[in-house]
Design a protein around this nucleic acid. Structure first.
Lengths: 211, 211
DNA sequence: GTCTATAACCGGATAGAC
DNA sequence: GTCTATCCGGTTATAGAC
């Protein structure tokens, strides 16, 4: 029940959930294309990186790039898988060390920011495509399932491993710090009888929407 | 100080903020293109509606369509302007009639859902493009300024015209109803001394992030 | 100066041969 | 697995008509 369960169960970073596996050499070609793409995304952003340029720099034909990645967006999905794996690794020590809900939550969130920092520049595109319900990048899409389930498990562990009783970019970091503190207090205070009625109202709303 | 200030101050529905005005006949052509586009969006969705088809059905050349609308996304911006105008009109009676914060907020939000209902099908694309910081559709973009300021004024009026002391799709409607009730109670309860510390903490966080 | 049209460009995606 | 050839649609260049 330690965090090793989560970290150990990681999907192979570049397995590109739901995507063509491959044979020995194909796996290399695939990795080369992804590496090239992520480099280019960092350098020039997403929109200014064409599939043709990715293919060229990776030393394959355009059609071949599409053999490994069904679409340009699927490269981002692979990006998710890769950074998620890094995030899991970074969380290991934090979850090992911290026991309060507050510190565990903060540690996990700050680790995420650290992991994504090098890609800050093209973060915008992630929101854009992820917000499209039809995109394979949508958090609830089938393609996102593996990473989604792992991320869920990660947060479950944040909660379960904590006692829950105790009380990058500089602004983002401050936001995480501050928000976590607030959430922590609100969660604690929501147990007071005074708020029982409001909480029940909220819970019922959620339940109704599920049904 | 009645809501007439907001309703009266509406931008002309299709003025396409920041876009080419026009002469007599041009204005008609422009409206025809927009009508055609919105019809097509409703019928077949956004992605399946090509600029070529819009132009053809509107009886103009492709290049001509681009004379009036800088890009396909700008058609959506015009859509915002139009539905926003309808929303304002629908809000008039509500704000005239209701005086409690809760009912005013609910009325305005339900009116929005009603206004957008016919376009439910392509709502997804709105989130997608709006989430892109570089898009003219982004809520904070310069192109969005006119509608944004009017919408802000509308909500200001929801608050200012209320006493704030009293306590479509079926699920969306239920969500609005329920959420509004919750917000109302939370706003009320946040005045209790018990929550003073948390509120201050939250306010300070917001202030810091601004500075 | 306002409007309209034709032809091209560019990049994501696909078809199909090897 | 890999390539070449092509499609398709958003966008632009540009020329000319009112």
């Amino acid at each position: 029940m330690s965090e090793s369960s989560v970290v150990a169960g990681a999907v192979s970073p570049d397995a590109a959930p739901g995507e063509t596996p491959a044979t020995a050499r194909g796996e290399l070609t695939r990795a080369r294309i992804l590496d090239t793409a992520l480099d280019l995304f960092r350098e020039r952003g997403y929109d200014d990186t064409t599939m043709r340029v990715i293919a060229a720099r990776a030393g394959v034909s355009l059609g071949n790039a599409y053999y490994y990645f069904r679409s340009k967006e699927h490269l981002i999905q692979a990006f998710y898988g890769r950074t998620h794996a890094e995030h899991l690794a970074a969380c290991g020590p934090v979850l090992e060390r911290e026991r309060t809900f507050r510190n565990r939550l903060r540690g996990v969130m700050v680790a995420k920011l650290d992991t994504l920092e090098p890609y800050h520049r093209f973060a915008g595109i992630l929101f854009k495509t992820a917000a499209d319900p039809a995109s394979p990048l949508h958090p609830l899409s089938e393609a996102s399932r593996p990473v989604r389930e792992e991320a869920t498990a990660l947060f479950r562990e944040v909660v379960e491993g904590s006692t829950l009783t105790s009380a990058g970019r500089a602004r983002s970091r401050r936001l995480v710090d501050g928000s976590v503190g607030l959430i922590d207090r609100l969660v604690a205070i929501s147990k007071l009888p005074l708020l029982g009625r409001i909480r029940r109202q909220g819970m019922q709303l959620v339940r109704e929407l599920e049904g």
